[in-house]
Write a protein that binds this DNA or RNA. Structure first.
Lengths: 230, 230
DNA sequence: TGTACATCAGTGAACGCGCGTTCACTGATGTAC
DNA sequence: TGTACATCAGTGAACGCGCGTTCACTGATGTAC
């Protein structure tokens, strides 16, 4: 069944709204995102946007999901290019993809990994799946390495019981056979990647401290790979 | 020379403004911070605040410096309690102090480590020194360990020339004798701490993924200590 | 194929709100003689 | 110690701005018979 002209127009307008929202995000940040400005850019009276979006918060949610998915696509795309690579190569592919996307889209990176927008809480049911795509990709690399017997034992001391329970729940949820210790390391790898990229994107080192931040990041990826046993 | 009553009143009002600004930050975030609201809370007409603060941006700068310094004080205080501890113990003290402060003051943590406030750029000359206190403390631990011969060699492959130049500049600036490789690791340690704390403070793991985030963080500090050679 | 009705996109006005900043002013506190 | 003047804190009104959201409406597109 082909979409009617009206349906096509509606879908096009929907896409335009998200696109214009993205552009606004880049200019004035999430807290300043405004439906009226989107309407203006769309060439339409402000109340017309309400035909497409119930409220400002709903637009924010669309943009959050959009950003998570584009990051997820970037990571999946990078992984596809090294489908037969070693775990280490695939780990580097994920790390570099996250950095490149964040540098290209600092505002959207900030939307999903920066300060939460005050008064706005992303609805978990709609946000959870796209929000976990990168960590799921990292866990996939880990699991694959483990099944291939390419994983060194983790250098971790015993995990406290509370943490082990949480990690076992994750193992069960995703059907992982890799040990809980490696999952604890994977959590560090993920938060460290985001932390390192955040510092660079938001310029939290002094602005002229590192002339070659890519080189620093590569070193960090290597250290993290070492922790995982790649 | 004793401060005159007028001067005392002025200083008290200054402190009140910063305090009220902090409270607002906690409620509506940095982007929503408003001089009018501060004036209201202060019980004064909105234009009166301009006697104390030149603009909204100047108030933001005050709050940024205030936040950096309180975090720095928290870290220094924690370090003072383990002045004779091992490098590893001191490393843990810093890591825990950062986490505790961030959890106690999520909005101010977000102000200095989260998405930059759109349209606002902190003046570097006023922000640099307080903004580097924690990393300077970390470097101090590293240097002390190195001078005491308590530092294992770093497991890092050769650093690229560009990075080595930057790191040598840092070594010169702070008079460090520890090798550049360890500084590269220290950068990861710092960004990783902030990354891990950010995930917890901003609830970027799923909200019920980790029931005992403190335990996870301890594991991460241990991994980072291992990387440093502590 | 043509008509009658329903659906939908977009309009324009309005409500009530908050913001940063400027300006001429009043009245109290401080200072020089 | 007392007077004349300068400094300063705070007032109140105003400027011009943008926001989210609601509502009754017009006119075009789609659908059922």
């Amino acid at each position: 069944m082909v979409a009617s002209p009206r349906e096509q127009a509606r879908e096009q307008t929907m896409r335009d709204i998200v696109r214009l929202g993205r552009e606004q995000l880049a200019q004035i940040g999430p807290a300043g995102l405004s439906l009226r400005a989107v309407a203006r850019d769309l060439g339409v009276v402000s109340s017309a946007v309400y035909r497409y979006v119930k409220s400002r918060d709903e637009l924010l949610t669309l943009l959050v999901v959009d950003a998570y998915n584009e990051l997820g696509d970037a990571v999946d795309g990078a992984l596809a290019k090294v489908a037969d690579g070693t775990p280490r190569e695939r780990h580097f592919a994920v790390g570099r993809a996250v950095r490149h996307w964040a540098l290209a889209e600092p505002a959207r990176f900030g939307l999903i990994f920066g300060t939460p927008v005050p008064g706005y809480a992303a609805p978990a049911d709609v946000t959870n799946e796209p929000g976990t795509r990168v960590i799921v990709a990292l866990l996939g690399i880990l699991e694959q390495a483990h099944r291939a017997g390419q994983l060194e034992a983790s250098a971790l001391a015993a995990l406290p019981q509370s943490l082990r329970v949480d990690l076992d729940a994750i193992r069960a949820e995703y059907g992982l056979t890799v040990d809980a210790e490696h999952l604890a390391v994977a959590a560090l790898v993920w938060t460290s990647m985001v932390g390192a990229v955040t510092f660079e994107v938001f310029d939290q080192f002094g602005s002229d401290t590192f002339t070659d931040p890519a080189a620093l990041y590569e070193i960090h990826l290597a250290l993290l790979a070492g922790l995982l046993g790649f």
